[in-house]
Design a protein around this nucleic acid. Structure first.
Lengths: 163, 163
DNA sequence: TCTCTAAATGCAACTCGTTTGCATCTATTT
DNA sequence: AAATAGATGCAAACGAGTTGCATTTAGAGA
């Protein structure tokens, strides 16, 4: 799963960002590079599956560091009540997230620029940023949802998919 | 501060929503009616200033109830890492929030409808909702900010700004 | 008006994501 | 290879929010 090439690539990226090249950091970076949005917990779980036993505090420290250095970005996932982290890719400012399987579609066009300019003018606010995410069900999960429609009535509410 | 008229109005609103008219609920509703976005903590603090000693669990229960009944709505405030509550006003789906003084400008027009339709078609997602808020400094806070520009450098770091 | 009961409240203990202090270990520099 | 800045693991703490339970109370009914 972890090719030597990938390992080297991660090490190199860390160096380029002036960060020590440690095993934990390489692993976290590698997982993030697979794409998508991961919570600290997701990362811990995946590493545990690989036989590693990372401490949550270490993961948070690494993720905070990546975020501070502009390597990753963090955004709150209201459905899960925790933070998700993803590699920061220029131009990808917004996401469409499947609330079930967490699949992510990157939206590289921001439909708000014109509107925001107008807002700036009408309100005289110095707008520092905005927060925009879409939530929904991806096609696969819609199918799965339909299939389970007749099955056991679920108690946990339809939000489902905590992890 | 709390006019009898206001009290009565709150009681009446509670009744209209099929909710018991208790002192705690009237107080919470009254504060929400003053406008803006309040955290459970904000509400507790204000009530404490008035000599009341509300229990946090009660406040949360009331706010959850208001939210469930469609009287209020809840949204996460990334800067504060907690939930804010506000009265739900039809048509007011988005907000521009001053990160300093918490002043709120309601945005009654959603610039995303057309874009979202397009998104639905291109991704085949069943979009269930979106999350959109703007953050910035209101004119007053910009002035205050400029004034304190030379004053003590702040320790808390302006990193902030989720997006 | 008084009584009854479902529901609201207060309290304390708890959950869980995240953070912090500290001792130990390790990647990088010399 | 030795030195050292800083990375890690561990355990304890933090804070927003939640829950169980005993007590109180709003509102319905007699």
């Amino acid at each position: 799963m972890t090719s030597p090439g990938e390992q080297a690539a991660c090490g190199e990226i860390l160096h380029r960002h002036g960060l020590k090249n440690t095993p934990a950091r390489r692993q976290v970076l590698r997982l993030l590079r697979e794409g998508g949005v991961l919570t600290a917990d997701d990362i811990g779980e995946r590493l545990r599956d690989e036989g590693r036993t990372p401490d949550p505090s270490t993961l948070y420290r690494i993720l905070d560091l990546f975020t501070a250095r502009g390597l990753a970005e963090r955004h709150y996932l209201p459905d899960l009540r925790k933070y998700g982290f993803s590699l920061k890719a220029a131009g990808h400012r917004h996401r469409l997230i499947c609330v079930r399987c967490r699949r992510v579609v990157e939206i590289d066009r921001c439909p708000l620029e014109a509107f925001e300019k107008e807002l700036r003018e009408t309100t005289r606010f110095a707008i520092t940023g905005h927060n925009l995410e879409w939530y929904g069900l991806c096609p696969d999960c819609q199918a799965a949802e339909a299939r389970r429609a007749e099955s056991p009535p679920d108690k946990s509410g339809p939000d489902g998919k905590a992890q």
